[in-house]
Design a protein around this nucleic acid. Sequence first.
DNA 1: TCAGAACCTGACCGATCGGCCAGTTCTGTG
DNA 2: CACAGAACTGGCCGATCGGTCAGGTTCTGA
Lengths: 180, 180
Amino acid sequence: MARSKTRDEILTAATRQFAESGYKGTSLQDIAAEVGCSKATLLYHFDSKDAILAELCAPAIAELRDLLDQVAAAPDPDTARKIAVQGFVDLAMRHRREIQVIYGDLPALLLQPALQPVQVLTEQLHATLAGTSGSAQSRLSAKFVLAGLPAVIFACTEFDDETLRAALIATAGRALESLS
Amino acid sequence: MARSKTRDEILTAATRQFAESGYKGTSLQDIAAEVGCSKATLLYHFDSKDAILAELCAPAIAELRDLLDQVAAAPDPDTARKIAVQGFVDLAMRHRREIQVIYGDLPALLLQPALQPVQVLTEQLHATLAGTSGSAQSRLSAKFVLAGLPAVIFACTEFDDETLRAALIATAGRALESLS
DNA sequence: TCAGAACCTGACCGATCGGCCAGTTCTGTG
DNA sequence: CACAGAACTGGCCGATCGGTCAGGTTCTGA
């Protein structure tokens, strides 16, 4: 996939800094300094700052798309929701920083062309979590879960993965429980 | 409080734009354009861009402090948690945009001197929500709720306040339910 | 009426932004 | 060894950033 070692290092450093300081809060100079190369080298390997963002987000977005395919293939809404929650937690834990970049930065970042598909995918995920009732309560809970999960996964480094995974799925499940 | 009409308009425009595009994503020129004045006028009314941020966040931070005083005066942990959840929801709904600026922007923004007290206050709130058990599960749920509430409150304009308030308190309560 | 305070602005500053380019160094292969 | 292409860089560009300043306008109260 990646053609050179420096190229990989650039993506790694950029991912870390975008997640920590935000896209607008990170300059090409900052990334170059962490990699230990010149700013011009970044623009030799990538067309632009936007292109770096697009490439580091691409794998997570692709997996999100795959997840929604699985969700669409679920036999019933309850199963779909279960797949969506567990799949999203797993996905976000595999791509902590990338998910933080995509969901942790301001909504304004989503207007970026590279992140445009995320909006549609997130809406589908939202609809799945909200279920078929369409009640205000369920739609709010869905938004709550979609906002809470990425934030917690990025912020929590104090627990081992399995503990985190189980606790998050449990908490998300409780938040989504339909009202009696 | 505010000495001039223009000063108020600057604060209003800045709050809106900081919430929407982020602190770093908003320039003084952007704010001036919305107000319909020159960039120099902003810096006549305020010492710096940071000072604008500090002043527009101040009321929400003060109310957050008040809330924590009430929480500290609660007779028992369960009551404290109830006060914290309801109080935070109310506070965030009174200051939707400000809370979005404080919590919705990157954690890096919290290093800003003006927002420094927020870290301590948020930790106290977190401890209250997590309760006395100290389990990983409860601490995660607390983080989940603190991240989810601001995001949902800012993003949801489709419901009337009372519906939103009730639904959020219910959802947060479910997410925080202790395990059997 | 008029002086002073309050308000506002265009022009400008140094720093930094993303991006570009000519040229140099590194590297692998015939 | 020669040489082609990949990798890399210093220096530069125009734009924009936050911030300053001298000076003009408007408001206000004695």
